[in-house]
C-alpha cells in the first residue's frame, strides 16, 4: 500500500510537470488553432537560455525570470512573424509550419550550444531531504516540481479568470470577429497567447531538466506525455490539460512500477496507448467541447 501511495505521489509530481507543458500546448492551440509540435524544442531552447544566463554568474531565480521574459518574446515573435502567415489556410499547412519550427529551434540550439549535454540542476530549491508523513515520503525534487507547477497554474488561472486582459484573451480564442467588434486588438492577443504558451513551456522545461538533465533531446519524450495529457483532457480545455497531465503522470508511474521487468519499459507505449484509446472512445477528450456553441 505504501509503495502504491509513494508511486501515486511521484506520479502526481511528474504529472504536474506534464500538466503545465500541456497547458502551454492548449494555450497556443486555443489562440491560433495551431497544434504546436515544436513546444518541446522551444522549451528546450529556453532551458539553454537559462543555462547560458546562469553560466555568466546569474542566480537561479533571476535567470528563470530572464528566461521567461525571453520565452514570452520568442513565442510572440514566432506568431507574429510566421504563424500568422498561414493561419486559416489549412490544418496541413499549420502542422507543416509547426514541424518547421521544431527543426529551426532544434538546429539553433545545436548550433549555439553544441551537441553535448549540460549540467542543469537540481538547484537548491529542488534538492534536500525528503518530507515524510507516516510511511509515505515525497522527495525534495518532486516537492519542488509540484510547488512550482501549482503556483504556475494558479497564476494562469488568476490571469484568465480575474483580469480584464485575461478576459480579452479568452474572448479572442472564442470569437475573433466579435473581439474585433468590441475593439480588442486581436493580433496582439494572438501573439500574447503564443508568448504565454511558450513561457509556460519554458517553466515545464526547467522542471524537466531538474531530473532529466539538459540536452537537445530532453524534451522529445516529455512532449509525448504532454500531448497525451492534452488529448486526454481535450485540446481546447486548460482544465483538461491539468487533469490530463496528472492522470498521465500517475498512470505512467504505476505502469512503470507494476510492469514486471521481463516485459521491459513501457512508459512511451502507455502514453501512445492513452492517445489511441482517447481518440477511439472520446476524440474530444474529457473536457473538450464536441461542438462549438456559436451564437
Amino acid at each position: 500500500m505504501d509503495l502504491f501511495l509513494q508511486q501515486l505521489i511521484g506520479g502526481i509530481a511528474s504529472g504536474s510537470m506534464f500538466a503545465i507543458l500541456a497547458l502551454g500546448i492548449v494555450l497556443i492551440y486555443r489562440s491560433t488553432g495551431t497544434l504546436n509540435f515544436a513546444q518541446g524544442q522551444m522549451a528546450m531552447f529556453s532551458m539553454f537560455v537559462a543555462w547560458s544566463a546562469m553560466s555568466t554568474g546569474m542566480g537561479f531565480w533571476p535567470a528563470v525570470l530572464l528566461t521567461l521574459l525571453s520565452a514570452l518574446a520568442m513565442g510572440a515573435l514566432v506568431e507574429w512573424l510566421i504563424v500568422r502567415r498561414v493561419e486559416g489556410t489549412s490544418d496541413l499547412n499549420s502542422l507543416i509550419v509547426a514541424m518547421g519550427l521544431f527543426l529551426i529551434f532544434d538546429g539553433l540550439a545545436l548550433y549555439i550550444w553544441g551537441p553535448l549535454p549540460k549540467s542543469f540542476g537540481p538547484f537548491s530549491f529542488f534538492s534536500g531531504g525528503a518530507s515524510c508523513v507516516g510511511g509515505v515520503c515525497i522527495g525534495r525534487l518532486n516537492l519542488g516540481i509540484l510547488v512550482v507547477s501549482i503556483v504556475t497554474t494558479a497564476l494562469l488561472y488568476l490571469l484568465f479568470q480575474c483580469t480584464r486582459f485575461g478576459l480579452a484573451l479568452r474572448a479572442t480564442a472564442l470569437n475573433r470577429l466579435a473581439s474585433r467588434l468590441v475593439g480588442i486588438p486581436v493580433g496582439r492577443m494572438l501573439s500574447t497567447g503564443w508568448g504565454l504558451g511558450t513561457a509556460v513551456g519554458a517553466i515545464a522545461g526547467i522542471l524537466a531538466a531538474q531530473s532529466l538533465g539538459l540536452d537537445i533531446r530532453t524534451m522529445f519524450f516529455v512532449v509525448l506525455f504532454a500531448l497525451a495529457a492534452a488529448v486526454l483532457g481535450g485540446l481546447d480545455s486548460p482544465v483538461g490539460a491539468v487533469v490530463g497531465g496528472l492522470i498521465i503522470g500517475v498512470v505512467k508511474n504505476l505502469a512503470g512500477t507494476y510492469t514486471p521487468s521481463s516485459v521491459g519499459s513501457i512508459d512511451l507505449a502507455v502514453a501512445f496507448a492513452v492517445i489511441v484509446l482517447v481518440l477511439m472512445v472520446r476524440p474530444n477528450g474529457i473536457f473538450g467541447r464536441p461542438v462549438r456553441m456559436r451564437v
Binding site: I82, M99, L101, L110, Y111, G114
Partner: peptide
C-alpha cells in the same frame, strides 16, 4: 549544425 535550421526555414518558406 545549422542543417535543421535550413530545413525548417525551407519548410516554412514553401508553405
Amino acid at each position: 549544425n545549422l542543417r535543421n535550421v535550413f530545413y525548417g526555414a525551407s519548410l516554412i518558406a514553401v508553405i
